[in-house]
Every structure is written in structure tokens, then in C-alpha cells.
């Protein structure tokens, strides 16, 4: 597979990749997939619609798979359905992400519909980064839908990051957590200019002793707008926590809506939310160490979104 310099820029931004990776991977560029399976991780194209099935054999340990998507042409609308099946007692890392380079005046859009099934006792670390670049008037649009099922004793940690350059995003995530299973979602989001981002997260705590955690940190700059909704539904003896922390700058707008629903007296659910400017004493502190104001802001934001 030949990669241009723009391809490499995008792959590095969204998946920390420098060229084609070792092991299992699926690099989808402008609607076409280039893939390789490994002994334990099989990547199979879907027959009825665009997308792939990623099937991790039971017991697979300490392996990773990269499945980045890159769009490099203006006006492209890409829709993909991916299904991830993590076999029993497996422990793997999946690095996804989507980078859009839009040099033209037509909108480029990638809609990813991802379904995760984490089988009994399995563990998954999922990292997804979204990034846009290019100075054409065309927007960079990303609309992921993520559906997660974690079976008995399973665990998943999902880190979903919007680095920069995405003009519009609507992210919908719904999870179903079974007995003694857990899910942690870490979302980090940066918007600037007139970008708009909406994220809706629902975690259904179905099984006894299930747990769910949503940690959101976001920064809204300029005239950008963000809406973050996180709903925990405790249907059984379970624990859940939502934490939304946002920095607002310029003329931006942020709505942060944590919601808890207990359908069991044994559900213990908590939330906290905060929106505020960068604290003045943080800026002053870094300036007393020799940074100028912009360097201080950049340092604080980089740490906050780390």
C-alpha cells in the first residue's frame, strides 16, 4: 500500500502510525480498505454493506489492531459499518480514528457505525481519535455511532478524542453492561472557530455488580458550540459515575447535561459537572515561570485534554 505525505500526516494524527503497521490492520482510504489479518485477529469485509468484522480469537493476549480511516478528497461521503467481536478472556487494544483532509469547497463526511461485543471475561482498550485539516471551504464532518455490549466479567475502556479541525460532529454512544462487567468512557473534545459538536452517551447497567464511568473533558474556543449529554441507567445493583469538565473560551457555548436514572434501589449513581474559564492563577503561575500568555494557555489546554 502506497501512502502519500498527507496520508502519513493523517495516520500519525489519528493512530500514531508511521506507515503501514505490523500485525492486523485495516486502513480505509477514501472508501477503500487495505487490510491484513494476524493469527489471532481476523479482519473480514462485510458482504452486505461497507465495513469489516474484526474477530479476536478467545484468549488472545497483548495484541493490537489498527483500523484508521482517512479521507483525502473533497466532497467524499463515507459510510462504514464495523463489528468488533472480542473473544472470551482476550485482552486487546484497538486503535481506530478518522482523519479528514479536505482541500476543496465540498463537505467531506465519514459516518462510522461501530458495534462492539466484548465476550465473557474479555478486556478491550479502544482508542479513537478524530482530526480534520485542509483550508478549503468544505466542512469536515464526522458522525460516529457506537454500540457496546459487555458480557459477564468483561471490561472495556474507550478513549474517544476529537483533536481539532472537525467542523461538525454528532456522536452517539450506547452501552449495555452485564453482570460483573465494566465500561469506562473517556471523551476529550476540542472545538474552535464555528465548529459544533454533540455527544450523547448512554450506559445501561443491566447486570448485577456492573459499573460504568464517563469522564468528559472538553474545551470550546471562539464561537464554537458543544452539547454533552451523559445518561447512566442503573437497572440492577451497580455503580456509575459521570464527570464532565469543560473550559470555555471566547464566545463559545457549552451545554453539559449529566443524567442519572435508577431503576434499582441498589444502583449507586453519581455525577459532577463543571464549566469555567481557565483559572487566572494557573495562567499567572506559568507566566511567572517564563511562559508568555499564549504558551501558558496552550500548556493548560494540552494538559487538560491529555
Amino acid at each position: 500500500m502506497k501512502l502519500s505525505s498527507i496520508d502519513n500526516q493523517l495516520l500519525e494524527a489519528v493512530a500514531d502510525l508511521h506507515g503501514v503497521p505490523q500485525g492486523a490492520f485495516n486502513i480505509r482510504k477514501d472508501g477503500e480498505g487495505h487490510r491484513q489479518s494476524s493469527a489471532n485477529i481476523e479482519i473480514v469485509p462485510k458482504r452486505d454493506k461497507p465495513g469489516i468484522d474484526i474477530i479476536v480469537k478467545p484468549g488472545t493476549r497483548n495484541e493490537s489492531v489498527h483500523i484508521p480511516v482517512i479521507l483525502t478528497r473533497s466532497g467524499l461521503k463515507d459510510l462504514v459499518y464495523n463489528t468488533f467481536i472480542i473473544g472470551e478472556e482476550a485482552d486487546v487494544t484497538i486503535v481506530a480514528g478518522c482523519g479528514i483532509h479536505n482541500p476543496g469547497n465540498q463537505d467531506s463526511q465519514h459516518d462510522g457505525i461501530h458495534e462492539f461485543i466484548v465476550k465473557q471475561g474479555a478486556s478491550l482498550k479502544y482508542i479513537e481519535k478524530h482530526y480534520g485539516q485542509g483550508y478549503g471551504k468544505g466542512k469536515k464532518v464526522l458522525n460516529p455511532i457506537t454500540i457496546v455490549t459487555i458480557e459477564k466479567g468483561g471490561y472495556a475502556e474507550m478513549e474517544m478524542v476529537q483533536i481539532k479541525g472537525v467542523d461538525n460532529t454528532v456522536r452517539n454512544t450506547e452501552a449495555f453492561i452485564h453482570e460483573n462487567a465494566g465500561l469506562k468512557i473517556v471523551e476529550r473534545l476540542l472545538t474552535d472557530g464555528r465548529q459544533e459538536a454533540v455527544s450523547n452517551v448512554t450506559i445501561n447497567l443491566i447486570g448485577a455488580d456492573s459499573s460504568g464511568q464517563v469522564l468528559s473533558r472538553s474545551v470550546a474556543q471562539d464561537e464554537s458550540k458543544q452539547v454533552f449529554r451523559a445518561l447512566l441507567v442503573g437497572k440492577n445493583r451497580s455503580t456509575g459515575h459521570v464527570e464532565c469538565d469543560a473550559i470555555i473560551m471566547g464566545s463559545a457555548q457549552i451545554r453539559s447535561i449529566p443524567e442519572l436514572t435508577a431503576e434499582s434501589a441498589e444502583a449507586m449513581l453519581t455525577h459532577e459537572a463543571a464549566i469555567g474559564r481557565i483559572a487566572g492563577d494557573q495562567l499567572i503561575k506559568l507566566m511567572t515561570l517564563g511562559l508568555d500568555e499564549q504558551q501558558a494557555v496552550d500548556t493548560i489546554l494540552a494538559g487538560f485534554l491529555r
Partner: peptide, 19 residues
Amino acid sequence: FQQPPRFKGVYVDEVMRIA
């Protein structure tokens, strides 16, 4: 500072290198 501010995500070695 008498009451140093706290920073989320900024690490000790990082701020020492800023200093």
C-alpha cells in the same frame, strides 16, 4: 506561590522543565 494552583494533566517533570 503561597497557594500554588493545581493543573489537571500537567506533570511534575513537565512543569520543572518549564521552570
